[in-house]
Design a protein around this nucleic acid. Structure first.
Lengths: 198, 198
DNA sequence: TTTGGGACCGAACGAACGTTCGGACAATGC
DNA sequence: GCATTGTCCGAACGTTCGTTCGGTCCCAAA
């Protein structure tokens, strides 16, 4: 095993543990147990627990952002691009549940300098979806700005780490399709008037 | 100050601290600092840190559930009941941001016996929204079961603790209205065919 | 055969943690 | 005046934490 492979292994096991028990509740001794490495030995690969979380989040986020941009580029029109974005996000989430859970749930566990790096990635990610939404012609009655719509959609997608089982009856692709349809058309069969004066 | 008032005060300050720094990162000594009570003195009101979190979550959740049921009861039809549910959930969230953030973010920080009590409340909450959604006639193209739709909507609403500022430019009532419209009608002006074979 | 450095670890460090213990202090009932 | 009770706390307990130090082992280069 090379140095790089060993580091990958450590990051992967740490992500599993963080996803299962939370960052602060997972001790370095527990990571030593699940990796088979010694407590001190892990410090040969990372400078500390904080860098461990940072590297997990940075690598995962950078990949999500990169692949999302690729997926969007392949789209033919605004709606298609939006569908591709949702499809990628949900399927990537399902394939990398541990890392994405750590990304979603431990978003404020880093030291401030490292937090700033992650936050910058997050802003780019939100901006990407926002631009996609601006291309879509909104229904007049929604009165949604694209920022709110982006966070609403991210909420639907990122919340799955609290309930969704990718190996259950609903395949990730099917879930993505349902989210896309819901977001684009809503649950009502036909657009109706808006009762509450909106 | 009576015993009950003092307990309320402790729970309220603890919820603030947990919301700001997370449950595991907030020490009892820090709670002692922000409450002005002594470290040992707090143990006169709660048996320990775990019970502190439990009482915060249980009280908040029970109230959300109770008020949600009241709000729904006042509705005239299925769509109206759904709108009232969303309106209540979002405005309650905005009014009790600290407790709701603790409820959303520290949903797996309790000991297992207490976790079971909270989980039972959560199941009743999800079931309530699920029943509301089953009353709404779904658009055929969505192929959404009510369970997935409920989690999608909860995702949109609960995710606001990561970005929404109730004192900012968007009032809670306006946000609730936008979420309702988005969920009922989607972002497209007219229902369109479904490109990806869904 | 010797040397140098990369990989690794046992054992310990100081600090912080949640919790407990014994008692202080004031108000109340007799 | 005395005993009792409810409220509160200083000081400590034992444990666990993240991290570090001083080294060992092994393999490649000289």
């Amino acid at each position: 095993m090379t140095y790089d492979e060993r580091l990958e292994y450590l990051l992967s096991r740490a992500a599993q543990a963080f996803a299962a028990k939370g960052f602060h509740s997972t001790s370095m001794r527990e990571l030593s147990r699940v990796t088979g490495m010694s407590l001190a030995g892990m410090y040969y690969y990372v400078s500390g627990k904080d860098e461990l979380l940072f590297r997990i989040q940075e690598r995962c986020f950078a990949r999500v952002l990169d692949e999302a941009q690729d997926a969007v580029r392949a789209g033919t029109d605004a709606v298609d691009r939006l569908r591709r974005f949702v499809h990628h996000h949900v399927t990537f989430f399902a394939e990398h549940m541990d890392e994405m859970k750590v990304l979603s749930h431990e978003a404020w566990s880093l030291s401030s300098e490292r937090q700033a790096v992650i936050d910058a990635l997050k802003r780019r990610h939100v901006a990407l979806l926002e631009r996609l939404l601006e291309e879509v012609r909104f229904a007049p009655h929604t009165a949604l700005d694209s920022r709110v719509a982006a966070y609403a959609l991210f909420g639907t997608m990122n919340w799955i780490y609290t309930w969704y089982d990718p190996s259950g009856p609903i395949a990730p692709e099917a879930l993505a399709e349902r989210f896309s349809n819901l977001f684009l058309h809503g649950v009502l069969p036909t657009p109706t008037s808006v009762p509450h004066g909106g």
